[in-house]
Simulated scan of single mutants.
Amino acid sequence: MSLASYIGCNVQLQVNDSESEELIYIGACFAGDEELDSVRKYQFSTPFVYEVSSHWGIEITEYINEDTLNESKQKLLELCKIMDKYLQKGDYFELYSCWVGEERDKRVGKVILPIYGFNIDQLVLPEKTLVRFEK
């Protein structure tokens, strides 16, 4: 199984090549159309949904190894920088990570954060948590 991360937003985004070497990019990796449709329907409040690829999803908990934890923190900060370019003041984007095939499952939590200014070292984002980042 693979941990996938998805974003939902109200604007169309540029999708990157699946062979990108970037730390994080917007484009397909693990999920297909069925998973994107499910996460749109069951988790997000936005019309546009994308997989955020990095060859592993974003999860920030005490239960993952330190290297994966630090990489997830870097990915999240980079994602906020990317999305800042697309969003206007008052806009938001949503983030949701889960195991592929579990997009319809009940959420374990919901968090609302500013796109900048949160303390990444105090943040806990387990799988199946919806995070709304507001600009």
Rank of each mutant, 00 (worst) to 15 (best):
S18V: 03
Y63D: 15
R40F: 05
L125A: 10
K85D: 10
I7E: 04
V131Q: 06
L123D: 07
I82P: 00
I60A: 02
M1Y: 11
G101N: 05
Y92M: 02
S53L: 00
R107G: 06
F48V: 04
L123Y: 10
Q12C: 09
A4W: 02
L69M: 10
R104W: 10
C29E: 12
E127K: 11
L123R: 10
V11E: 09
E103W: 02
F44N: 05
V15P: 03
E134N: 06
R132L: 06
E59R: 05
G57N: 06
Q122N: 14
G57S: 07
K85P: 00
Y92V: 01
I60K: 04
G101K: 03
E102V: 01
Q122W: 00
Y63C: 04
E21C: 09
I7S: 06
E102K: 09
P114E: 05
Y50I: 05
I120M: 02
C80H: 06
L13A: 10
H55R: 14
S45N: 14
S97D: 02
K73T: 04
D17L: 03
Y25M: 00
E134T: 15
F93K: 08
P126D: 12
R104A: 14
M1S: 14
Y63H: 13
S72W: 08
E127M: 13
Y25T: 00
L23Y: 01
K135N: 12
A31V: 07
I115E: 01
I60N: 03
A4N: 06
A28V: 14
L3D: 06
A4G: 11
A28R: 15
S20W: 03
D67N: 12
F48Q: 12
I60M: 02
S18L: 05
D105V: 04
L79E: 01
V49S: 08
W56Q: 11
I120R: 00
H55D: 12
L76N: 04
G109F: 13
L13F: 09
I24K: 00
Y25S: 06
Y96M: 11
G90T: 06
T68E: 08
T61P: 04
V124L: 13
S20K: 04
V39P: 02
R104M: 14
W56A: 08
D121N: 15
V39R: 05
R40G: 06
N65V: 05
N10G: 14
C9M: 09
Y63V: 02
G27W: 06
E62D: 15
P126Y: 09
S5Q: 00
T68M: 10
Y42I: 03
D17I: 02
F118P: 11
F133H: 09
I112T: 14
S97A: 09
D33R: 10
S45C: 10
R107H: 01
H55V: 03
Y63A: 09
W56N: 09
A31H: 03
W56R: 11
E22R: 00
F44V: 07
S97V: 03
